[in-house]
């Protein structure tokens, strides 16, 4: 998102937030599948973006915030791995909507399948298929080699393909 030129930094950032916070939050949700963690992750990414706002030279605040969010998730996950994290609540799910039952089952299967992926594999899937980033852009955002993204991507699709809940997902991928 390009920054408007005619207002102050706070107004610019507030406008940026209103345009981008939802998208960032949805990415965070797909990465964590936990509404509370996603909100915390989104807020932290926005805080850092706000702090760096005057320095974002190219004006693409969304790309900057998205990169921070994805990397914060990686750092956060590493930290959580080193500590016990008891919980007595199941991850929040979206409320039941008017969708047909089949669609709901498919969504649940997808969520469960994505949870089985490793953090990096899930991040790559979200970057590639939700954010529509290229493999090179994904590698740049994650700060890893292109080959790492390719291998994680291939592993993730392989796991999704054999997942019992999504046994036919991405079956056409090779022919697409």
């Amino acid at each position: 998102m390009r920054r408007p030129e005619s207002s102050g930094p706070d107004e610019q950032f507030a406008a940026f937030m209103s345009a981008s916070a939802h998208r960032l939050y949805r990415v965070a949700y797909l990465l964590t599948y936990d509404a509370g963690q996603a909100e915390e992750l989104t807020q932290n990414a926005l805080v850092r973006t706000y702090t760096a706002w005057p320095r974002i030279v190219d004006g693409d605040g969304y790309a900057y915030a998205r990169r921070i969010l994805v990397n914060l998730h990686s750092d956060w996950w590493r930290r959580l791995l080193r500590r016990e994290r008891p919980t007595d609540r199941l991850p929040e799910r979206r409320a039941a909507g008017p969708d047909p039952a089949d669609a709901a089952v498919a969504r649940t299967s997808l969520a469960e399948a994505l949870r089985q992926l490793t953090r990096r594999e899930r991040t790559v899937i979200v970057c590639r298929y939700y954010l529509d980033l290229t493999e090179q852009q994904t590698a740049d955002d994650l700060g890893v080699a292109l080959g790492t993204v390719k291998s994680a991507h291939a592993r993730a699709l392989r796991k999704l393909r054999v997942d019992p809940g999504l046994s036919t997902v991405v079956e056409k991928q090779e022919t697409a």
């Binding site: 949700y29 797909l30 989104t42 926005l46 669609a103 969504r107 997808l110 969520a111 939700y130």
Partner: peptide, 27 residues
């Protein structure tokens, strides 16, 4: 039968209606 396009679509549907409560003042 699913394809990666279906995967894309499901990722979008998965997050439809989700909205954060983060405010500018809090940030």
């Amino acid at each position: 039968m699913y394809t990666v396009d279906d995967l894309r679509q499901q990722l979008v549907e998965e997050t439809e209606g989700l909205a954060p409560r983060v405010t500018f003042a809090r940030v």
